[in-house]
């Protein structure tokens, strides 16, 4: 059930041309765990080069949404199309090939504890690209670390890094196989405001550098403001409101308004 959003104020952030190609379509998906109906008939579209933020309360099913998109969970109903391919019906091989084009930044970073930063970055590289880039591996690792500003950590273990550094390394790991779509699961949660802003800038930087589309799950309003081209408010499993940050900020709807206080 989508509410009509009041007309946007003049000072909205620039949105990409509506004509841009749709890279991700979520059409009417539902997902429930037992009696807990997390998603009910939820839909969204993501266009090339666009940053969309899905905003919602804790436990509103945001993480479930992106896990469905990447194929870690299967929706009970509805279809998800990523880069023109229906995720739910893909074979393992095709799904792996698709996943090579989609980056996923986990909320908990999910860095492999037993591996150094270099090995963490090499892991998806070797898995996705196999034998192709043998000679360039080191170069690609260094470049990815440069992108996130942490080249000096290459031989450290994740446990030796700070929370912000870990988040950056995780982002570097997401970027090392250049993605067309990046899914961010609460990228700034658990970070101090300063580090969180750095991560937000990094997300913008990545968007510009790689011309990737991003789907960002967040409930951090600063993050939403800084990274979003478009915002979708997820409430009770449905897409409740949609618009730019400024449009939603101006909304008088009590539920929408509650997020912006």
């Amino acid at each position: 059930m989508e509410s009509t959003v009041p007309p946007a104020p003049a000072a909205a952030l620039p949105t990409p041309a509506p004509a841009a190609e749709v890279v991700l379509t979520v059409a009417g998906i539902s997902k429930s765990f037992g009696d807990n109906h997390v998603l009910k008939d939820f839909s969204l579209t993501l266009r090339r080069g666009e940053n969309v933020v899905v905003l919602g309360k804790s436990g509103s099913g945001k993480s479930v949404l992106i896990k469905c998109i990447i194929g870690l969970l299967k929706p009970d109903a509805g279809t998800i199309t990523v880069l023109g391919q229906p995720v739910a019906t893909l074979s393992h091989v095709a799904l792996d090939a698709l996943r090579a084009k989609v980056g996923f930044l986990f909320q908990s970073n999910a860095l492999y504890d037993s591996m150094t930063v270099r090995e963490n970055l090499l892991f998806p590289l070797r898995r996705h690209w196999l034998a192709d880039h043998q000679g360039q591996e080191d170069q690609l690792v260094l470049q990815a670390l440069d992108d996130v500003g942490l080249p000096q950590t290459i031989d450290q273990l994740p446990a030796e890094l700070s929370g912000g550094q870990r988040k950056r390394i995780a982002l570097a790991r997401t970027l090392i196989v250049p993605p067309e779509i990046i899914l961010y699961d609460e990228p700034t949660t658990g970070l101090d405001p300063v580090t969180a802003r750095e991560i937000d800038q990094l997300i913008r930087h990545v968007q510009q550098k790689y011309h990737a589309s991003s789907l960002i799950i967040s409930h951090d309003m600063s993050c939403v403001r800084l990274t979003s081209d478009r915002v979708i408010l997820l409430s009770e499993g449905r897409s409740y409101a949609e618009g730019t940050y400024a449009e939603l900020l101006a909304s008088t709807d009590p539920i929408v308004h509650a997020f912006f206080e």
């Binding site: 990447i70 870690l72 996943r99 090579a100 996923f104 999910a110 860095l111 492999y112 504890d113």
Partner: peptide, 9 residues
Amino acid sequence: QIDAMEVSG
């Protein structure tokens, strides 16, 4: 990390 592995092909 197990999910991350799966995502990494």
